[in-house]
Structures are given as structure tokens and as C-alpha cells.
Design a protein around this nucleic acid. Structure first.
Length: 658
DNA sequence: TAGAGATTAGTTTTT
DNA sequence: CTAATCTCTA
């Protein structure tokens, strides 16, 4: 084994006699344990193909694959590799095989929240996006908690909830008409398939010799059920997690899964990893002090041998712009002082929208940066356009994909023609009798469209993915469409992402030896092109706290530490401050050497200046390890006061005008 | 059908 | 106050 392991780590790697829970504190080397354990299992003679390691994000899966890659390849190059993927990717794999028992074609489409929004809007008969999203949110929560439409109706507490419950069943029906599933179904439907048929469960249990699961504290009830079904009575699994880093409660994750584990598995062995290899003593002491304010499930005390370290800086700023500027200056200074790299630095914040001020400030200082999180690469319009074609080629019941494909680029088919076709759009469009009554222009457009899709579908199983996608783009004249529908600059960048996408698909098709139809489904689960994300680029990371989990940086700037931001006001209102505290804990424990906390005295909210108070979490740290910046009144303050007064005046005038 | 102007709604985190 | 969506007009 390449890396030396400490005693508890080694114990966790070697223990394979039964279910194991590894409580891995921040920076205690949990990824090392998982990868070492996979290697250990294989050394012990396990079949690599029977091992699966499950993560929550693609990033984590990729990282683990990279870390496991080397030792595996050295052993026997051609042997089947262990499965290392996200929960959703595993669900997809299972559902592909079990689709029929769930009344689905194996070519089912996967719809993301953006695809689902119009469906839910129609069911609710509303154009109110906020309501639609709330409904999507609610139904997702029900699915993740294994609550059926009937149960939802029965227990709906408010009228709004009842209204959502009434469409919940219809939503499922709509998806099955389209032969489509949503993200939650990728876990829920495999669970249903495995529960429905003992033979199916036995099949998968037989295929899986050993299961490792990362970030166990972030599992939701459906995921736990899947875990139980897959491991069966043999219970050959290792769950790795840290209750102090549970930050996905809002997505249905529940610490009850962690509490429940020893009860469901009386023979469960628990190993704690408490030595931290990442942070200085001061950073760790503060993090421990903070998290001490939460009730704990398991007693755990992180310690470090890395030295006391620098005090943690606490600095107020006049507003978010001033905060960003001072962070940018501090980064420039530290970089100069340490001769380090830009990617030693991270700026972490609660919400994506907070990134903006920092982007501006860093750009002004010519400091390279990379924003993680934010909009997914596959969310770009042009990519969604192409993916609609792919979805339709794979699954002709996918009406939403048909609508998008047939109307982009414009080919004279609009709302009226679609109305004429009714439902089951693709079949209708290919139906000579049905379209016979349409004007010639529409009729020709539709039949040509159908011909193209059918021909591509026929060839998709026989020809390389790359060539087909290339041809598709040419056939539909997408380049011309782009350059005629938007200005040159934009068309250029969009066309570039199209060519990137085409290149990526062809490479992917060759590497995995998968055809276009098989590739189509996995696209829905991806957020980045592999190799993108400029991880090799030397740039300051701007990241949400959620997206920063699992990462580490020499210097961390934790910004926007105000009441209402962190802890977030919604969370305070909902009585969820504990999870916010864990979020802060995650942020603190990302830092290796230096940590700087900042908060804004004022912040603009919906165009209004609002005064802010420092987050209660600052007061919960180890005070002896903090160094408060001198709170000199900045010259800008007076000017800003005046501006705030002006804003109020403007608002009053606007009110009077109405 | 596209583009400009007006109006309006928004702010939590993501597979 | 933005950014995005909607609506109206050419």
C-alpha cells in the first residue's frame, strides 16, 4: 500500500467481517480509507467487478476513480474495474435492466428540473414559477421520503400542500406517458423494482460482493432503502460518514439513517477516525468549539499534530463590494508573501449569488479565479437543444423533447401544428393520415423531420456516436441557426460549446464503447464535461460551502458571515440552525493553514441597503484563537450612509408616483 | 417571428 | 437593483 495508514484507518480497511460504520471527521483521510479498502478487497481475492463505491457527486466519484486507478492497473490491466459512481448513476444502471418491470422502455428519458417545470406548470394550471418550483420541491421531498400520492393526499396539512398532492399522481402519470423519469425516480424506481420481486433483489445482491458508501450522513430514506436492498442479509458494506458534516437535510437527507444503522445492524462495527491531517490546531480547535454547540450523535474529538498555526482573522467590511476588494487584496498579498499558487486560495460563501462581487474584485486585480457550482455546463440552451434531439432519437414517447427539437431551429412548426397533433407527438407526426389535413408546408416539415429522426435512430445502434452527432448538427443546420438568431459574439461562443460537446460525445463513445442511445441517458446526470472545470488551472476557487465539501485549501476566506446569510434567514425561521452550523463547520475545516472570516455591515437586498450583524457562529468559535481586525470606520461609510438616504428618497418618490 | 421595451419577480444549498 | 420573462409591434 502506497500511503501509510494510522491504526483506526488500517482497522477500517481490514475489517470485512460484517457491516462497518466509519465515523470520519473532517480531514481524517476517509477517501484514503475507501480507496485503500477497495485495493485491500481485491488483494484478498475479491472480484473487482463485484465491488461498488457510491458517492454523491460526480466530482467525488471521479476523484476516487483517479486515486484507485493507479494501484488497480498495476495489478492486472484488463480486469473489470470496480463500480465507482454516484447514487443516481447506480440507480440508472439498475433501472436500465429492470425497466420492463416498471413499465418503462430501457431507453427512458431522464428529465431534469428544468424539463419538469413546464409539465408541473400545466398540471397546476399556473404560470407562477415560484408556485411551480415549490410544487416540484414538495413532490421531490415526498418521493425521497417514500410517500406515495395517496399518502400525500391523506396527510397534506395546508391547502397549498393539498393542491400539490392532487397533482402528484398526475405528475407520475405524465412522466410514464413520456416514458421518462426524474432524478428522484432513479433511486425510487430501482427500490420499487427490487422490492417487487425477490428474484430481482437476489440478482443484484449476487452481483454485488461489497458496497462502500461515501458521505453516508447525506443519504435520504430512499437511498438507505436501496442500500439495504442491495446488501441484503450479507450486509457486506462500509458506510463512511460524519454526522457533523450533514448538510443536505434540505434535499431529504436525514441523520436518522445514521442513528438507525446500529439498530438495523446489531453486529455493526463502528470505527472513528479522529486524527486530522489537514488543519492547524487553532483552526481545528475553533471548528470543534463551534460544532460543540450542536447536539451530537456520536462523541468524537478531532485532533491534529500540525502545529498551532496563525490566529483566525475576523474582519468586518462596509459592504459586499468592500469585502470582496479586501479579500482580493489579501489574496494578492499572501500570494506574494508565500510565493504560493492561486489555487491555494478559496473564497467560500453561502449562496451562489454571492460570487459576483468576488468575481469583479478578483478580475479588477487580475487574479485568475474559477467559480465552482453555478450553472451546469449541460444547462446551456444550445446543449439542451441538441440533447432534446438525442432524447427523441432514443425515446419517441418523449413529447417534451419532440417539442423542443421540432421547433429548434424553426421549421415552420408552431403551437398550432402541435395542437393538431395532440399527444404522442412523434407517432402523430409520422402518421400520414393525421397530418394529411395540415397545410402542405407543415406537412412536409413534419414528415421530413420524422424521416430524419427515424434514420438517425436506425443508425444509432450501428455507427459511432461521434459521427452521428456531427451529422445531426449539420443536418439540422444548427450553426446557421445560431448565427442568424443571435449576435456574432454569442453565436460564436455557443457554437464553440456545440463543437466541444460533439467532441466530448465522440470521445466518450469510443472510450466506453457505447452508442449514442446509451450515452444519451448518462448526459442527464452530468454537470461538467470531463476534463473541463479547469482543475489544472492555477486559479482562486470561488465556491459555495456545499460545493466545497471534500476539498481543502491552504488559505480559506469564509465570507458573508452575517445573521440571515449564514445562518440563512430561511433556516433560522425553520429552526434549522444546526444544519447551518454544520455548514460553517464544513467551511472552517476546509482550511489547512490560514482562515479569514468576514462579514458585511451592510448588504443590498432587493435593491435596498440592509444593515447586517455578525453571524452568531463567530461568537461560538474558540475566542482565544481569533484576531479581530481593527474596526476603523472606513472613509466610504459616510458616503454610503448618504446613498442609503437617497435610495429611501427615491423609493418614496416612486411610491408617490403610483 | 424577432426584437425592443416594459414589467415583474427575486435570494439557499444540487444529483 | 438586476435579470429574465413577457408583450407588443413591425
Amino acid at each position: 500500500m502506497k500511503f501509510p495508514l494510522n491504526d483506526p484507518q488500517r482497522a477500517a480497511v481490514r475489517y470485512t467481517d460484517g457491516p462497518l460504520l466509519v465515523l470520519a471527521g473532517a480531514g481524517s483521510g476517509k477517501t484514503r480509507v475507501i480507496t485503500a479498502k477497495i485495493a485491500h478487497l481485491i488483494e484478498q481475492g475479491a472480484n473487482p467487478a463485484g465491488i461498488a463505491a457510491i458517492t454523491f457527486t460526480n466530482k467525488a466519484a471521479r476523484e476516487m476513480r483517479e486515486r484507485i486507478g493507479a494501484p488497480l492497473r498495476r495489478r492486472d490491466g484488463a480486469a473489470a474495474a470496480p463500480t465507482i459512481c454516484t447514487f443516481h448513476a447506480l440507480g440508472l444502471k439498475i433501472l436500465r435492466r429492470e425497466a420492463a418491470s416498471m413499465h418503462l422502455t430501457p431507453r427512458f428519458s431522464i428529465l431534469d428540473p428544468g424539463d419538469i417545470e413546464p409539465i408541473v406548470a400545466e398540471l397546476l394550471a399556473t404560470g407562477d414559477r415560484a408556485r411551480v418550483r415549490a410544487a416540484q420541491w414538495q413532490m421531490s421531498a415526498w418521493k425521497n421520503a417514500l410517500i406515495s400520492p395517496d399518502q400525500a393526499l391523506a396527510r397534506a396539512a395546508t391547502e397549498t400542500e393539498a393542491a400539490v398532492a392532487r397533482i402528484y399522481g398526475g405528475y407520475g402519470a405524465a412522466l410514464s406517458v413520456y416514458q421518462a423519469v426524474d432524478f428522484d425516480d432513479l433511486i425510487a424506481l430501482p427500490v420499487a423494482a427490487l422490492e417487487k420481486d425477490a428474484g430481482t433483489a437476489a440478482h443484484w445482491q449476487g452481483r454485488l460482493d461489497y458496497l462502500l458508501i461515501d458521505e453516508y450522513q447525506d443519504t435520504n430514506p430512499v437511498q438507505y432503502r436501496l442500500l439495504r436492498l442491495l446488501t441484503g442479509s450479507r450486509a457486506a458494506f462500509t458506510a463512511v460518514g460524519d454526522d457533523d458534516q450533514a448538510i443536505y437535510g434540505w434535499r431529504g437527507a436525514t441523520l436518522a439513517n445514521l442513528e438507525q444503522l446500529p439498530r438495523d445492524y446489531p453486529s455493526l462495527k463502528v470505527i472513528k477516525l479522529e486524527q486530522n491531517y489537514r488543519s492547524s490546531i487553532r483552526i481545528l480547535r475553533s471548528a470543534n468549539a463551534l460544532i460543540g454547540h450542536n447536539a451530537k450523535l456520536f462523541e468524537k474529538a478531532l485532533w491534529s499534530e500540525l502545529g498551532l498555526g496563525e490566529p483566525i482573522q475576523v474582519a468586518p467590511a462596509a459592504d459586499d463590494q468592500a469585502e470582496a476588494e479586501s479579500v482580493a487584496r489579501a489574496i494578492a498579498a499572501l500570494k506574494f508573501e508565500h510565493r504560493g499558487r492561486f489555487d491555494d486560495f478559496a473564497v467560500l460563501y453561502r449562496g451562489n449569488h454571492q460570487a459576483r462581487a468576488f468575481e469583479q474584485a478578483l478580475r479588477a486585480q487580475n487574479i485568475p479565479y474559477a467559480v465552482s457550482g453555478g450553472q451546469s455546463w449541460f444547462d446551456r440552451t444550445e446543449i439542451r437543444d441538441l440533447v432534446a434531439y438525442l432524447r427523441l432519437i432514443a425515446n419517441d414517447d418523449d413529447d417534451p423533447a419532440f417539442v423542443r427539437a421540432v421547433t429548434t431551429p424553426r421549421r415552420g412548426v408552431g403551437a398550432q401544428t402541435l395542437e393538431h397533433l395532440g399527444r404522442g407527438l412523434f407517432a402523430a407526426a409520422c402518421d400520414g393520415a393525421l397530418i394529411g389535413t395540415l397545410p402542405a408546408r407543415q406537412r412536409e416539415a413534419l414528415s421530413e423531420f420524422c424521416k430524419m429522426i427515424n434514420s438517425l435512430r436506425y443508425r444509432a445502434e450501428r455507427e459511432p456516436a461521434g459521427r452521428l452527432i456531427d451529422e445531426l448538427v449539420k443536418t439540422i443546420g444548427y450553426e446557421d441557426y445560431l448565427f442568424s438568431s443571435c449576435d456574432k459574439r454569442e453565436a460564436q461562443t455557443r457554437w464553440e460549446s456545440i463543437t466541444d460537446f460533439v467532441r466530448w460525445l465522440s470521445r466518450k463513445g469510443e472510450a466506453d464503447e457505447r452508442n449514442l442511445l446509451e450515452l444519451t441517458q448518462s448526459i442527464a446526470l452530468l454537470t461538467l464535461l470531463e476534463g473541463e472545470e479547469g482543475q489544472d488551472a492555477d486559479a482562486v476557487r470561488l465556491s459555495t460551502l456545499h460545493a466545497a465539501k471534500g476539498l481543502e485549501f491552504a488559505h480559506v476566506f469564509l465570507v458573508g458571515l452575517e445573521e440571515g446569510v449564514l445562518p440563512h434567514r430561511e433556516a433560522i425561521a425553520a429552526g434549522n440552525v444546526d444544519e447551518e452550523r454544520r455548514l460553517m463547520y464544513v467551511g472552517l475545516t476546509r482550511a489547512q493553514r490560514s482562515l479569514r472570516l468576514s462579514w458585511c455591515k451592510r448588504r443590498k437586498r432587493a435593491g435596498e441597503w440592509q444593515s447586517g450583524a455578525p453571524s452568531r457562529f463567530i461568537g461560538e468559535l474558540a475566542q482565544e484563537d481569533l484576531r479581530h481586525a481593527e474596526t476603523a470606520l472606513e472613509a466610504g461609510d459616510a458616503a454610503r450612509d448618504k446613498e442609503a438616504g437617497n435610495a429611501r428618497l427615491r423609493q418614496m418618490r416612486a411610491m408617490l408616483a403610483r
